[in-house]
Design a protein around this nucleic acid. Structure first.
Length: 417
DNA sequence: TCTGGGGTCCTAGGACCC
DNA sequence: TCTGGGGTCCTAGGACCC
């Protein structure tokens, strides 16, 4: 059996931990710049305030009900999160940390005399040890565990779906839009076909699901039928992309201000890469105006550049992100957000650094120059720099690469004809 | 004039999650 | 006046390779 443990109103619960007077008081944790509600206490949920509601739109309610607003403090939440996860590890070592406030636990092979009591005790102990209220859903697939957790949250905090009749009972009145993997677009589409409950979705044919929801949806439906398709990821995989972005909370018009923002994001990203022992091959810079604001000229642009060598070097990343920014920046717009995404991530220890030092810009310039020449001279073929480095591909005519030329640059170029 | 088949890689866009 | 900041995966199409 698989359990999903989810912390209730996690960020709000964390704030309450350090400020017990907030108990039973309506309370919201707000995003960056106090822009919108990203966590709500039960009292706030009862007022009908939705996740993601802009704070300025609910000022009246905030005054009327004396709702407390807190700015988010992710360092604190991450700390509390690891305390919760470590507590749960005492009940099974087989654990996937799914998000800051959720984890999957695997109890396969456990010979427990009273499984339900074990789960109940685990919940009670966790709440007692960490001060964070949690709910537990148990079933034999991850999707069903998520679903049963949602139901548990509204009831006694624990729900175990023991067999298929339990599952059917749970699916019967469960709205598809609350399913894990069904978002706005898919539920709208499915509603159009008259499918509203999880049970109705489960009864659809595989072909229908695959056609409209792709293979991802098919996995979801199979899991609803009790067939495990999504495994537990107990080892944290290396990130495939790393992003740092911010909304400004005001209008930014000047290039200098964007430059300042983008260069600090690049520095942050390089730190994140180093922390993961990773290097990136590609860097994307994006900027855009405020899409919510009507009546202003909208502009959105991004530029992806290939880094000369895979790197996590701050200076390199700042340099290339500012080059990209220069290309996409246009005067006369009111920007409200910018960010950097790095992709093509590889482990640092696989980078060949003996070819040349990535911080040596003069050498890199030389390499670029050679490539430019090759590119102008020949039409087809492939050239790589730093043989393992996946650096630059060129086309040139077969068999025409001059031996003199390669020997001259043999330490930095390998050519394949 | 006729013009293969099997594969990879890359990119853009769209859906989803917390 | 003020609307988050991270991530994942899939699909389709084009370039290119042998």
């Amino acid at each position: 059996m698989i359990a999903l443990v989810d912390c209730n109103n996690f960020y709000v619960s964390c704030e309450r931990l350090f400020n017990p007077s907030l108990e039973n008081q309506p309370c919201i944790v707000a995003s960056n710049n106090d822009g919108m509600a990203i966590a709500r206490s039960n009292e706030v949920k009862a007022l009908g305030i939705k996740m993601g509601t802009p704070i300025f739109m609910i000022q009246d309610l905030i005054k009327k009900h004396n709702i407390k607003i807190y700015s988010s403090n992710y360092t604190l939440y991450a700390d509390v999160s690891s305390r919760v996860h470590n507590t749960l590890k005492q009940f099974t070592p087989n654990i996937e940390i799914y998000s800051i406030d959720e984890c999957f636990l695997n109890f396969e092979g456990f010979h427990l005399i009273d499984f339900e009591k074990y789960i109940q005790d685990m919940r009670k102990f966790t709440i007692q040890a960490t001060g964070i209220p949690v709910s537990v859903g148990v079933a034999n697939t991850k999707t069903l565990a998520k679903l049963s957790n949602k139901i548990a949250k509204k009831n006694n905090g624990v729900l175990i779906l023991k067999d298929d009749s339990d599952v059917k009972q749970a699916l019967k009145d469960f709205d598809i839009s609350d399913l894990w993997g069904i978002g706005r677009q898919y539920s709208k589409k499915l509603n159009g076909y008259g499918i509203k409950t999880a049970l109705e979705l489960r009864n659809c044919t595989d072909d229908f699901i695959k056609k409209h929801l792709s293979v991802v949806g098919l996995r979801l439906v199979k899991e609803l039928r009790g067939e495990p398709c999504i495994g537990l990821e107990e080892v944290v995989p290396r990130k495939k992309g790393i992003c740092t972005s911010r909304s400004f909370g005001k209008n930014v018009e000047r290039y200098e201000e964007l430059k300042e923002a983008v260069s600090t994001y690049a520095a942050t990203v390089s730190g994140k890469l180093r922390k993961d022992n990773s290097c990136a091959n590609l860097l994307t810079v994006f900027i855009h105006t405020n899409p919510f604001k009507e009546g202003i000229a909208q502009y959105s642009a991004s530029k992806t550049v290939k880094l000369p060598v895979p790197t996590n070097n701050t200076t390199e990343l700042i340099h290339h992100s500012l080059m990209a920014l220069k290309i996409i920046f246009k005067n006369g717009y009111l920007y409200n957000k910018a960010g950097i995404i790095v992709t093509g991530i590889v482990p640092s220890d696989q980078i060949q650094t003996n070819m040349f030092d990535s911080t040596d810009r003069e050498k890199l310039k030389k390499v670029d120059k050679v490539f430019d020449q090759l590119n102008k001279t020949w039409g087809r073929g492939t050239v790589r720099v730093a043989s393992e480095g996946i650096v630059k591909k060129w086309s040139m005519k077969r068999g025409l690469l001059s031996p003199d030329y390669t020997s001259k640059w043999e330490d930095i170029i390998t050519a394949k004809c």
